[in-house]
Design a protein around this nucleic acid. Structure first.
Lengths: 120, 120
DNA sequence: TACGGGCCTGGAGTGGCTCCAGGTCAAGGA
DNA sequence: TCCTTGACCTGGAGCCACTCCAGGCCCGTA
């Protein structure tokens, strides 16, 4: 599978995939005889995971660490699990932020409504 | 109130407040005779709102538009309300992203557990 | 009067992309 | 056969939203 398809499926853009490769977030993408990248199903699964981690706020530094563990193979599984569990904590924090913002917005919208009422 | 206190209360850093002022996101912060910024309660409330909007993903461009409406006074209240309602939509999308990511993580953690079980 | 602390400005640096110029290569059509 | 088209390549510039820092000013305290 080539880069445009990999982009469509993983959710990342082709540019971002190349950037991630350069930055060491993606291990060893093979090239065809035409020197174009060929993505294996495992590559795609990895990219998709990166897509979700990034989208929900994992910094690249931590993703780099995660990628390094991935390259080390099965022996790093417990540590990789720990990384994902820590990310779960971050997701909870983000949900709390969204909820808090919802409250602020509801309050603001309410006061706007009152002002509109007063004006009319 | 001076900038460090404004930062503590609003959630923004002093640097970010100055940056927002430069970028036109904060209308007219008064200066004292010492040329230092003096924040009114209204300034603080505005900064706090910006803090939450930014933290939950509103781009600066849209915040700039919002600030422009704010400067126009009460007549822009309906439009400002509309901006906040559109942001509510964004919050829902972000929640969906978090939920989706949670699912991906749960699946990954599960497969990691299986591999750990197989290895031991 | 010397010093520390808080604030100021302007500008450089950073993270995480995103876009673009200029080039290669394979396939398809005239 | 040659030409065009289109997907991909690399290296590098540009962008957004900060963040940090140097070099200065002013005020209060020892």
């Amino acid at each position: 599978m080539r880069i445009s398809e990999a982009a469509t499926i993983s959710g990342l853009s082709a540019d971002t995939i190349r950037y991630y490769e350069k930055s060491g977030l993606v291990p060893a993408i093979k090239r065809g005889p035409d020197r174009l990248r060929r993505f294996s199903p495992e590559n795609i699964e990895w990219l998709t995971l990166l897509y979700w981690l990034r989208k929900t706020g994992m910094p690249m530094k931590e993703m780099r660490r995660f990628a390094e563990l991935y390259r080390q193979g099965a022996s790093s599984i417990p540590e990789r699990k720990a990384v994902l569990l820590r990310h779960e904590v971050r997701l909870r924090e983000r949900r709390a932020d969204l909820d808090q913002c919802s409250k602020v917005l509801a309050y603001k919208i309410e006061t706007y409504k009152k002002i509109e009422g007063d004006l009319s």
